[in-house]
């Protein structure tokens, strides 16, 4: 099995080191840390894709910069902190990776960070959907 990229592995370790109730608080920290959208997306909401599998309205956009480094941008309402937390984990965990590294991230990464009990498996599906959408957008981008 390939090793996880270090940022994703660190996030995983951070969650797994905590008691269940503290995992929720860490997820809330991630939610609060979700960066504002860069100006170019704020001006062009049409560039964002809605993740329809998610319970709350969440929009994502994947970007490859001139050096080929991956960036995920996401926005979700303040009243949807769980969704914001999921987006923030992925935005931070995937940031700066190469396209190949992103595509190689295991699809079950969301199930591997110890949130199933604190958040429930059903809710975690929203994060899996977001990861799936990000990879699909990236594949489309590479094929274009």
């Amino acid at each position: 099995m390939n090793a996880l990229p270090s940022q994703l592995a660190e996030i995983q370790e951070d969650f797994l080191a905590l008691e269940q109730k503290d995992r929720l608080l860490l997820l809330l920290e991630f939610a609060n840390d979700l960066p504002e959208l860069p100006q170019k997306f704020q001006d062009h909401p049409d560039l964002l894709e809605r993740v329809v599998e998610c319970q709350s309205p969440v929009f994502i956009f994947v970007d490859l910069d001139a050096d080929g480094a991956f960036h995920l941008h996401a926005t979700a309402p303040r009243e949807s902190p769980t969704t914001r937390g999921f987006a923030s984990i992925l935005a931070q965990g995937l940031d700066g990776l190469t396209a190949q590294q992103v595509l190689a991230v295991p699809d079950d990464y969301p199930q591997s960070i110890g949130l199933s009990e604190a958040v429930s498996p059903l809710r975690l599906r929203g994060m899996s959907a977001m990861l799936g959408r990000a990879k699909r957008q990236l594949r489309d981008r590479l094929a274009a």
Binding site: L24, L25, L28, A31, S56, S80, P81, T82, S120
Partner: peptide, 9 residues
């Protein structure tokens, strides 16, 4: 709530 973190917010 539906959102498991809203109470904490």
């Amino acid at each position: 709530d539906e959102d498991v973190l809203l109470y904490e917010v």
